[in-house]
Design a binder for these strands. Structure first.
Lengths: 219, 219
DNA sequence: AAGAAAGCGTAGCATACACTACACCTAGAA
DNA sequence: TTCTAGGTGTAGTGTATGCTACGCTTTCTT
């Protein structure tokens, strides 16, 4: 029942100030990424990571607090890049079908990428234990993608290129259609990834199908 | 460097013969299911499972060989049930739109189900380490669903209800569209599951959209 | 009733692993 | 040059855990 006598000035995840520090920080993140995505969170020990990155265990704990902290930092670090560059400035000047094709192609290429697949697997697996992580991953990745498409559709509705529709729902449906079973097949590593041509062919067909359906049934 | 002197007559996963044996076998499977899906494979110890199921550690190892064996047995056991009852005898007598709606609704209800989500999470997470498991899950579950829809579309093409199309690809696209982002949102537990009405509404819209698109662009 | 096959239960081994302690080294600012 | 915050390296601790050993009990067959 003793009090907590100055709890050691709480040293939480610390961003490094010095040059060498930054270097180690990055090296640790990079090693964590490689190993976590290769073997999975619970199959990698902190010692493995230090062995891979160089540096010392103490530094790892000073920077990231604990193993989960490192994992989270890694996921955030990557999520930022991974789903970026999906927005394009000239997207509004394209015909609708071309715009949809571009969205779909960007998504599908990302979704077939080894690194993105690894993160997806890990986040899905850990999400029940780390809901914060799940939310951040979704918002930075798939959720953002859907939002971008939704807002695109909103503008097309506004300028009468499309009939008034439930853009949020339709954006999700379109992206889901593009992914289809391909995403799961890659997640489970059941087949070799499709070629760029196969991807483009699929996306083109999806865009056509989708727009065809939209014209008929405005809702 | 000694030889292996009769390697103990290899006692691999053993199916129980006696009544009591069967009971324990089932109890172990059920406990494994509950715990694995609740906490994840690596978060559950074999002792936990025995504590939950009753019986003894020895029995578990006699029946399933090791922890992974139990996990695999559990996944197979469940995969069989989970995606069953998707085929219906009268499906060919329905209008195409109604048939698609039924497929979609069945899928979406399953995909929103806690147990199915748990298995999906675990299989995705473990697939890099257990490719056999991944294949079996896919074939028994999502892959079978796609196959059923494909064959349905094949029959509609044959009887000219639909134009000649790439039925395999389209089946995957349709199911993907139905799932859309909803599946991921449930996997990550970001929102409460949708109501039955919401599911039906979404599926109806998907079926309409899909068929509309098909009529326009036969390909 | 007898005997074997299967189940029970505990105790323990071997190991892996997250995390800490601590003493020493280095870089870079004053 | 000196001072110090931050980095290094190693050794260790506590614990969790997969799996085995082994002796006893129950069940089922013949």
């Amino acid at each position: 029942m003793s009090d907590s006598p100055l709890p050691r000035s709480f040293t939480p995840p610390l961003s490094p100030t010095t040059q060498r520090g930054r270097k180690r920080h990055d090296a640790l993140l990079e090693a964590a990424q490689r190993l976590f995505l290769e073997r999975g969170f619970s199959q990698v020990s902190v010692n493995d990571i230090v062995a891979e990155a160089g540096g010392s265990l103490s530094t790892l704990y000073r920077h990231f607090g604990n193993k989960e902290g490192l994992f989270q930092a890694m996921v955030e670090h990557r999520s930022h890049d991974i789903y970026t560059a999906l927005t394009a400035d000239d997207i509004d000047s394209l015909p609708v079908e071309a715009a949809l094709t571009r969205f779909g192609s960007g998504l599908l290429h990302k979704a077939m990428d080894d690194e993105a697949l690894g993160i997806y697997r890990e986040v899905v697996a850990e999400s029940p234990r780390q809901p914060e992580l799940a939310r951040r991953f979704f918002d930075a990745g798939p959720g953002r993608m859907r939002q971008v498409v939704k807002e695109y559709l909103d503008r097309r509705v506004a300028d009468r290129s499309l009939p008034p529709v439930d853009t949020a729902a339709l954006a999700g449906m379109y992206l889901g259609m593009v992914l289809g079973e391909w995403h799961l097949i890659q997640l489970l590593q059941l087949e070799a990834p499709p070629s760029a041509e196969a991807i483009d062919a699929r996306v083109t067909r999806c865009a056509t199908l989708f727009l065809g359906g939209l014209r008929d049934a405005p809702d």
